[in-house]
Design a binder for these strands. Structure first.
Length: 176
DNA sequence: GACGCGAGGCCTATTACATCA
DNA sequence: TCTGATGTAATAGGCCTCGCG
């Protein structure tokens, strides 16, 4: 493109835009399915086969990677939205349940300590997001910490479903 | 071995053109 | 024919890695 003749508008050539043929797109897609990146030799060979410049093949792969990443992000976003909806619903149900229990004027359930076999107050109990065991260590967690714990659990669950390395690495950094 | 430098590749944001409703 | 929306090729700039002196 850059070696084409310049136009009359101040020496700046109008940017022409190539439209790939269906066959070219098909071959590029096929190649992308096999490998999301190309080494210089593969790029050269593919460009030759498609009668394109190596730079055009490179740009196509860059844009293609960006498109698939965008698609993946959109899917994750949809999943998180649905999950948020179900968590909200679950939260509503649990709050209703609490209200009902309060209305019944039933005291908190007595839980015995696994260590001393003495009763523990329910307010000191919390669920570990990783091992899903009840612990008694985090009695004074504020809302921020609790939200962080929930987010970590969410990220873990999402990454296990979607399989995103970034999310997995982020979630694995949370301490148990 | 540490450091600076340039080349090359990738990513991201953006631009600009082609096409279509 | 005009126009706005959409898709996508192409560009620009920044970051990272690698090889070399």
């Amino acid at each position: 493109m850059e070696d084409e003749e310049e136009s009359s508008n101040g020496g700046v050539p109008p940017r022409k835009k190539l439209r790939l043929t269906k066959e070219q797109s098909r071959l590029l897609e096929e190649s992308f399915r096999q490998n999301h990146t190309l080494n210089p030799r593969q790029k050269e060979a593919l460009a030759m086969e498609l009668k394109l410049r190596p730079r055009q093949v490179e740009v196509w792969f860059q844009n293609r990677r960006a498109r698939s990443k965008l698609k993946q992000t959109e899917m994750e976003c949809e999943y998180l939205k649905r999950w948020f909806g179900s968590l909200t619903e679950q939260n509503r149900r649990l709050q209703r349940e609490v209200e009902e229990l309060r209305a019944m004027k039933v005291g908190p359930p007595t839980v015995l300590s696994p260590h001393s076999c003495e009763p523990l107050p329910a307010s000191t109990l919390t669920m570990c997001p990783r091992c899903e065991r009840v612990t008694t260590t985090a009695t004074d967690k504020g809302p921020t910490q609790i939200t962080a714990a929930i987010s970590t659990t969410a990220a873990t669950a999402l990454s296990s479903k979607v399989g995103t390395p970034a999310l997995q690495s982020r979630s694995s950094s949370a301490a148990c």
